[in-house]
Amino acid sequence: MRVKINWDALGITASLACAIHCALLPLFLTSLPVLGVEIINNAFFEYFMIFLAFGVGAWALYHGWKKHHHQKMPLILFSIGMACLLLKEIWHDQHIFFLVPAVSLIVAGHYYNYRLCRKANHCHANDCNHDKLVA
């Protein structure tokens, strides 16, 4: 039995997990420094999460581009969003100005990729019969 992975769903999940991490982690984990654990504002952890999200997201978008729609716009939206995440790490004082567009663009790229993949529907001229109605 072969398991199929929905890479778009995984990419969207990783992007949303990143957004939740950025928004809620400071609220819930403010007691960690008292315990000796420094995860908030930990540059290594932040860059690791960004590169992990980039890897999963890029794979999902590549899969959609290669197998379904051959459109570059989802990858462009995603890449600009990821660049905003990196800029957020460089200019901490302006983080909210980079975070909101970053998350919006990353999710928009995945959503657009998802829509294009569904529109392609693995349908080729000789393989599909658009006139049939499924009851």
Rank of each mutant, 00 (worst) to 15 (best):
M82V: 15
W59C: 02
E38K: 08
S31T: 09
A14G: 00
W7I: 03
A60Y: 02
F48V: 10
F51D: 04
N6V: 07
V3H: 08
H68Y: 15
V34H: 07
K72F: 10
G55N: 06
D93V: 08
M73I: 14
V37F: 12
G81P: 07
I76Q: 04
K88R: 14
F44T: 14
L99N: 08
C84W: 01
K4C: 03
P26F: 05
F78L: 08
Y62V: 04
D93T: 13
K88S: 06
E38P: 02
H95P: 00
P26R: 02
H21V: 02
Y47V: 10
F54T: 14
I40Y: 10
L25F: 15
L61G: 01
L85T: 00
A43M: 10
F98A: 05
A58H: 04
V34L: 10
N41M: 07
K88D: 03
F97K: 01
L99I: 01
D8T: 09
M49F: 07
L29S: 12
L24Q: 11
I12V: 14
A53W: 05
F48W: 10
F45Y: 15
F78R: 07
I5C: 05
G81Y: 00
I80G: 05
N6M: 03
W59H: 10
P26L: 07
L87K: 05
W65K: 04
T30I: 03
L75Q: 00
L32E: 11
I96N: 10
H21C: 06
A60L: 02
W7N: 02
L85W: 04
I5H: 11
H92Y: 09
H63A: 08
I90Q: 08
I96S: 15
M73Q: 13
V56S: 01
V37R: 09
Y62S: 02
A17L: 15
I76L: 13
G57E: 02
W91R: 06
L27P: 02
S79V: 00
W59V: 04
L35G: 04
A58D: 00
V3C: 01
L99Q: 11
P74I: 07
L16N: 07
K4Y: 12
M49I: 14
